[in-house]
Amino acid sequence: MSNEPAYLTKGPDAVLMRLLKGLTHDVTNRRLIILLVALVVVFGLLIGERFFSQATVQSMAFQLPELGILSLAMMITLVSGGLNLAIISTANLCALTMAYIMTTHVPGAEGFIWVGWQIIAICAGLAVAAVIGLLNGFVIAYLGVSPILTTLGTMTMVKGIAIGMTRGNVLSGLPEPIVFIGNGTVYGIPTAMIVFAIVAIPVAIMLGRTPTGAATYMIGSNEKATRYSGIDTKRVILRVYLISSLLAAIAGLVMMARFNSANASYAESYLLVTILAAVLGGVDPMGGFGKIAGLILSLIILQVISSAFNLLNFSQFLTLAIWGTILVAVMAVPNIRRRLGFAD
């Protein structure tokens, strides 16, 4: 018993933490699971059967991927000790690029060419994202500008391009297969959820199983030490911002599909929420720590709160307030434990 870490032996939540020992090694994840179960029980009691109905669960699965993919884009830069404020504007500019090609070239085409234009459109969106990502990565890694300033600049510039090109107008009327990505289901599972899974798994593998991923965590902990250990930190940072940007483009595709339109200023309120989601999921805002599993748990928690509040007819703004409160509460747990004498 004496070798056990403190969080398993001391404190009011020790019993619960011990119960979850077999499930996950991560302390943050165990706390998040406890929080999630508690929320589900409370909302289940308040709302009743409707909370567990197929319609509710499915609507949660429809809403989660947008914020989910954007949070992934934010998360990998946070892990590297940086930040990407340009994700929303990147998503919107890429969506506009895709929507522009799709609305101008797809309607007249047929057969292979019809499919071809849609693929070209998506590739063009990804290419735009790649340019933005490389610009971010270059300025941060090779010029040594702090990530928050760099991406504040690119965020404003990219949004400026989107507004300048569209004059603030909405592009709408996308082809069927694209709309399906946002609104269709495969065997009852929303397509957007499948896209999220397809995107999240390689990112998880990249972070957990590849040299680039390992280097990303190391850079987040101590960039100088990583550089002196012989790793080309600049190239890794460049890659991190490139991947972040590409993820933002995919989020843009999902958003565009769901709304069946694209605009320069969609989803702007998500920007700070992605940081909230990542940090709630155990990502250290100073860099070096954070796992995809934690992020997904935190996304589910945020979505459960949002959907339950919706069923309870509470305002979506109350949801925002509760999200903020939960973030502070979860971040405060280690400190409160220390004060009570249950140091981790």
Binding site: V273, L276, F317, L320, A321, I322, G324, T325
Partner: peptide, 8 residues
């Protein structure tokens, strides 16, 4: 967090 709490 407080931005979201205050504003919400």
């Amino acid at each position: 967090a407080t931005l979201n709490i205050f504003y919400g």
